[in-house]
Structures are given as C-alpha cells and as structure tokens.
C-alpha cells in the first residue's frame, strides 16, 4: 500500500514555488531519508505530507486521503516532529504527554494510561517527569515530544532533523525509536543533514534541491 503518492506536487509560499513539481511514492513500512541544503524544500515537503500546507497544483494522496480535500483526515493520522519541541514549557513532561493524548480525543483514563506507556517507551526519566519542560535537557525534551506524538498512534511519522542538538545517547535513542516504529508497520520520513546517520537507517535517500525531489540511484 502506498502511504504517500505525489504527482507534480507544487507548493507556493506567497508567489515562491517552495516545491516545484515533486513526484514521490512511499510505501507502508518504509524509512525514507530526505537530504538537501537549507531552504531546499525538505520541511515544506514534510508539511505538505502532514496536511499543514495547501497543495498548489499537481495531485497527492497521503494514507489514501486526498491532499486537496481531506487535509483534516491526514492530520489526525500523521505525527510531525519539527525543529521545535511542540511542548508547553511551564507544564511538566507528564502533563504535556497527557495533554496531547487528551487533545487527540482520548478520554481521561485512556489518555493517562497511554501517556504512562509512551513515557516508559521513550525512556523519559521518572525523576524528571514532575519538572517543567523548560528545565529538561534537549535530549529529554525530544523524548517527551516523541512520547507526546506516540500517544496518538500515528501511521506516518515525519521527522525534521530529529538528531539535531542531541548527544550520542539521544541520537541512538532516536534511531532505536525509528526502527521500532517501522517494526510495527509504521512509515517514517526523515529530513536530515546528517546523511551518514540516516543512510544507516534507510537504504532509500532522496535529495531535495530547488523544490524538486530526486531519488539517489547509487543507494
């Protein structure tokens, strides 16, 4: 099953074509790495796939939903880890994860249960759970962000520079998490500058340049 199907996809930021006709097919269970210079269009491509940016022209489906008409359905099935944590700095790590579980429509009891599972799974340290997020390290924030996304049980993961700012342990934790997601049938797209790192995770690397996605044939 194709999770992503883009044909001549264009996205305009104002008048500027941030994506200039992308053709991309991603199958279920794949890990796909996007590489490219700053401003090449990697983040725009991820946001398009998350249903956060409107498709200017071309056609596209994500998880079987049309990008023109079913953006809301796409959003509910997708997790996106961006450059920022997406967390509330004055809430504790636990409160954040529970909030995001409840925000995805879960009742209080289920949200608490899933949050505790997600926290354990992501390895957020117990002693840090009652601290405001503002006092956590970058690595613990990233783990908390991933826990907040995990509670929604998304089918497609869009990770934008997931390794940036992390120490070796944090990077390895992210790699393990990605492998675990794919192991249970999820699909992951990673935008990264660290080609060596993402190449070890994925045999499929796509270069984004000038708003166009090119498959790396030598992979």
């Amino acid at each position: 099953m194709n999770v992503i199907e883009l044909r001549g996809a264009m996205v305009f930021l104002g008048r500027f074509p941030a994506l200039a006709g992308v053709n991309l097919t991603v199958e279920s269970g794949e890990i796909v790495a996007l590489q490219g210079a700053n401003g090449a269009g990697k983040t725009t491509l991820l946001k398009l796939c998350a249903g956060l940016l409107p498709l200017g022209s071309g056609s596209g489906k994500v998880l079987g939903h049309d990008l023109f008409t079913e953006q809301q359905s796409i959003r509910r099935s997708v997790a996106m880890l961006g450059h920022t944590s997406g967390l509330y700095e004055d809430l504790t790590a636990r409160e954040n994860v529970i909030f995001w579980a409840q925000a995805s429509g879960l009742d209080k009891a289920t949200a608490h249960e899933r949050a505790e599972n997600a926290i354990r799974r992501m390895g957020v340290e117990e002693r840090l759970l009652s601290l405001p997020v503002s006092r956590l390290s970058a690595g613990q924030k990233r783990r908390t962000s991933l826990a907040s996304l995990t509670v929604r049980r998304p089918e497609l993961w869009l990770l934008d520079e997931p390794h940036s700012g992390l120490d070796q342990d944090g990077r390895e934790a992210i790699d393990s998490f990605i492998k675990e997601v794919v192991g249970v049938g999820g699909t992951v797209i990673i935008a990264s500058h660290e080609l060596d790192r993402v190449s070890s995770l994925s045999p499929r690397v796509i270069t984004v340049a000038g708003g166009i996605a090119l498959e790396n044939e030598d992979q």
Binding site: L52, M80, H83, G86, A103
Partner: peptide
C-alpha cells in the same frame, strides 16, 4: 504559549 515551541501545529495535527 502556542508560538514559542509551535504548539499550535500540534493542536492542528491533533484535529
């Protein structure tokens, strides 16, 4: 509150 860490995007994705 919603812009510092772009939590608004999370609210949109949560539906």
């Amino acid at each position: 509150l919603e812009t510092v860490n772009d939590s608004l995007t999370g609210l949109k994705l949560a539906g």
